[in-house]
Computed example of a mutant assay.
Amino acid sequence: MTRFEVVTRIAAPPQLVFDISLDVDVHTASMADSGERVVGGVTAGRMALGETVTWQARHFGVPWRMTSRITAHDPPGHFVDEQVSGPFRRWYHAHYFEPDGEGGTRMRDVIEFTAPLGPLGRLAEWLALNRYMPHLIRSRNAHVKSTAEAAR
């Protein structure tokens, strides 16, 4: 299992950043480089507790689908999305939104994942995923940041 955190400072209030982070359209735009698109579940707008979305994308030249569910939802402090089905043996992504004391937000992502295929999956984590996944989250967060700061 791999676990990592990414912290992003955003010059916008926590409630706005929370709402934008749950928006399917914002997520899709943030993942444009991988051709990510919605193919099931919530197809537009903001997700809520218990709702699912199925994404289709291409990473490492391989097409994949992942269905995730919002399993915790406590606005504007945090929410969690977890894989229901997809490429990982386990995917858990907790999103935290804390006031920074200056009218902005300290957004913290905590991700835990396990690749499938036992020893081969652990090798894939070590060789590629442990670098690729934090990069993907930082890229997504840069888009969330620009969207929130523009909406402010």
Results as ranks from 00 to 15, higher is better:
M1Q: 10
M1S: 11
E5S: 14
V6M: 06
V7S: 12
V7C: 11
V7F: 06
V7E: 15
T8Y: 07
R9C: 01
R9W: 02
I10Q: 04
A11K: 11
A11D: 13
A12G: 12
P13C: 08
P14A: 07
Q15S: 14
L16F: 06
L16Y: 02
F18C: 03
F18Q: 11
D19M: 09
S21Y: 02
L22D: 03
L22I: 03
L22E: 05
D23S: 05
V24F: 07
D25P: 11
V26F: 10
T28S: 13
M31D: 13
M31Q: 15
M31K: 13
S34M: 13
R37W: 01
V38M: 06
V39N: 05
V39D: 04
G40Y: 00
V42A: 09
V42D: 07
V42R: 07
V42N: 03
M47V: 11
M47R: 15
A48V: 02
A48C: 00
A48R: 12
L49P: 00
G50M: 05
E51P: 05
V53S: 01
Q56V: 01
A57S: 13
H59I: 14
G61P: 03
G61W: 03
G61E: 04
R65H: 08
M66A: 12
S68R: 03
R69K: 12
I70E: 00
H73L: 03
H73F: 15
D74T: 13
P75L: 08
P76Y: 10
F79L: 03
F79H: 11
F79Y: 15
F79N: 01
V80Q: 00
V80K: 00
V80H: 00
D81W: 01
E82Y: 02
Q83K: 00
G86K: 04
G86W: 00
P87W: 01
P87G: 09
F88R: 04
R89H: 14
R89K: 14
W91K: 00
W91A: 01
Y92M: 04
H93M: 05
A94Q: 13
F97N: 08
E98D: 12
P99M: 09
D100H: 10
D100F: 10
G101K: 10
G103F: 08
M107F: 14
M107G: 05
R108G: 07
R108N: 03
V110C: 07
I111G: 01
E112I: 10
E112R: 12
F113N: 00
T114Q: 12
T114C: 08
T114Y: 01
P116R: 15
L117A: 15
P119A: 13
R122W: 12
R122V: 10
L123A: 14
E125W: 03
E125D: 15
W126A: 15
W126N: 04
L127G: 05
L127V: 11
L129P: 04
N130G: 10
N130W: 10
R131E: 11
Y132C: 03
M133G: 06
I137P: 06
I137Q: 08
S139F: 07
S139H: 15
R140I: 02
A142W: 10
A142F: 05
A142L: 10
A142R: 15
A142K: 13
H143A: 15
H143M: 09
V144A: 11
K145C: 06
K145L: 05
K145N: 03
S146W: 09
S146D: 13
T147V: 15
A148D: 08
E149M: 05
E149W: 07
A150K: 10
R152D: 06
R152F: 02
